[in-house]
Design a protein around this nucleic acid. Structure first.
Lengths: 219, 219, 219, 219
DNA sequence: AATGAATGAGACTTCATTCAT
DNA sequence: AATGAATGAAGTCTCATTCAT
């Protein structure tokens, strides 16, 4: 008989309550994500989030100390998702070439699947960062993402596939800027998305490829 | 005899008033620029702008129909400055190579000289665009800037100096994203600015250079 | 055989429950007293009281119909304590002189031992009394205390030891105000407490003593 | 021709505006005083004060940084009034006897004319003082008033009219407590106010009078 | 043209109380 | 009896805009 089957009434109750509690938090976060993305930080009221989540106004403040904290949590969630996706993809990559392609693809896929999330997270982060007068700048989703690119680039340099006169952190940031263009650019303006992605991917790969390896990364 | 010396007393008065009026508007715009850049759109009140400009609170509304209009004017001003700089530079360029270099240099110089202006203009534009439900998306500073790059790239393609499988509009946007990294990146984080600029310039030029022209654009 | 040992299991359970119930109530009251004294009525939330008492938030409302009722109970408790102390002391007094001294001493001792309780009870009572629009002003701890003084003073007058042109209720109230100064006065400001008490005691006794009896009440 | 008659339009305008400004502040303070006295601090909303003053909700915050600041100003105003009254009276007093009587009379008159003001100021001050974590306890109206009594008592001691074994600060405080009883006591309970005042005055004077001077202070 | 006092809709947040478990 | 998540009315305060001077 496992210990699990011997749940006492209290455990059962608190377990159910915990579930309910986690539920509320999740519903709130989902609502927050939707609204922050749709309307932006300033045009989303805690009240709106609560209503969309189907809970009372006050419940919001049981899970977030204030509106900013809620936004931070939303950003963190997006951050973790992106990071997990990238790490998972990197784990399946054997060659450097695959890594570059992989992260590009994952980045663009995420941006495509979650239109506006990056934009919202980033725009909001700008607004927020000023309010951290203790000097502790919370690392933004962008910084973390850029760091992943830096890793990939550094490995590419060691393998002789990427120009070794690049500073990985800087170029990682530049590459991220380009990929994030996908999110920032107005979908309706760019027309054919495949066309758009192909262009950006080519530009990035050509900018990275060390002399003589251009063929290897050809797409 | 210049036209200026022929003004009647009345004219003189109205001229002075015009000057004063233009003065107030200019002072307000300068103050707006400083504050929008320093604090962002939402944390800048018309009152703050007026105070910094040294005029009464109500005066603000003599020159701008509302806060948003003031912001639009700020963006437009920055836009015109950038555009004028780029056009002036392009006029002095004979070869394609010079053009690419030129716009890169001008872009980065502007961003260096006006830290935060692009960021502020852009971030604010995001917040604003939602409020245009009539479909008329005001072209942002970014769009216009990207258009200049598109021109340069298209000319480079005709000259055979830039990969001809690029869509100029898209790659123009991508290049802009990279150069704008200068403004977005935290100055203190990137350390040596020259190092930073060198890296970005190399990346852009290599990404653009058609096969076989790499040497020509070497830096 | 005591009654306690004869309880059946059921009795035992309900007895334990009663004890536990009384326990919870007592713990809540103790917590309420501490917090009302430390923070005042408005800055003490039922939640805080419950947490300090170590019971659930909802439990509070099993024992008090609302926050005000809890406060009333706190005041009542303090009231009963004071009254019991004064009555006990009066019971041991034979002469009028002893009574005056006795009540003074008890009053000041209570105030010394329970710093802030009188102040809190009184301040809170002020806030509350407005909410009794039916005219039934709940007698405050102050009123009750003053009543004891009035008794003592009336007896002193009969014995010829206290000016007989005093209205006992009024002077009882005045004496109470002076003794309560001990609680109202900032401990750190007054310095030596003995010095403080001696001064007040002298003032009261001299104010009361009928002509010619000054010596009897000398301290 | 006086300078006054030569008021320029600007002066005239700003003068009128200043008057209007001072007017609003005065109206707000008067409304605040009435409401704080009638309802107490916590049951008075800035909105209520504004409405009673006949100005908009936002105007309140043009004159007080927040609700607490408004309350502080109300207390200060009462404080200054009381102090001015006492000082004015003291200035007309030649003998010590007159001083004691004078301050007693002024105190009681003020309390009679401004029922509730002292109580409100004091009660509110209690609530507030906790919020001064920088250690700077704002001297309350009570402290200041007590200080005046201390002065009078010290002078009386020098003149041999008051027991010289009193600490003036302490007894000043005690006397104040008694006189403030007038404000704290429920008007309806005490009945005839003259009777009340006579009792308290006698008590105070007898408590103060040095041996042998009782006759001098007889009332 | 210029001013700045005035406005009030609306934002964020708290907290006494309820109720399903 | 005990719990603590949920509630929403109500409070404090801000700020873009107006208007009398």
């Amino acid at each position: 008989m496992s210990l699990q089957t011997k749940i006492t009434p209290q455990d059962s109750r608190s377990a159910r309550q915990d579930k309910r509690k986690a539920d509320s938090r999740q519903r709130l976060l989902a609502a927050a994500r939707q609204l922050f993305v749709e309307r932006g930080y300033h045009d989303t009221r805690p009240q709106d989030i609560s209503r969309l989540a189907g809970v009372g106004h006050g419940t919001f403040y049981l899970y977030f100390s204030d509106k900013q904290a809620c936004f931070q949590d939303f950003v963190e969630q997006a951050q973790e998702e992106v990071d997990a996706l990238i790490l998972a993809r990197l784990a399946t990559c054997k060659t450097h070439e695959q890594r570059v392609y992989g992260v590009l693809e994952v980045s663009m896929d995420f941006v495509k699947e979650n239109p506006g999330v990056l934009k919202a997270a980033w725009a909001g982060h700008q607004l927020m960062s000023r309010d951290n007068p203790d000097g502790t700048t919370t690392p933004s989703i962008v910084d973390q993402w850029a760091a992943r690119w830096a890793e990939v680039i550094a490995r590419g340099q060691k393998a002789g596939l990427i120009w070794d006169d690049y500073d990985p952190r800087i170029i990682g940031y530049a590459v991220l800027m380009v990929t994030s263009a996908v999110s920032t650019g107005d979908p309706e303006v760019w027309g054919d998305r495949e066309h758009f992605l192909t262009n950006l991917t080519r530009f990035v790969l050509r900018g990275l490829a060390a002399p003589g390896v251009g063929n290897a990364l050809k797409i």
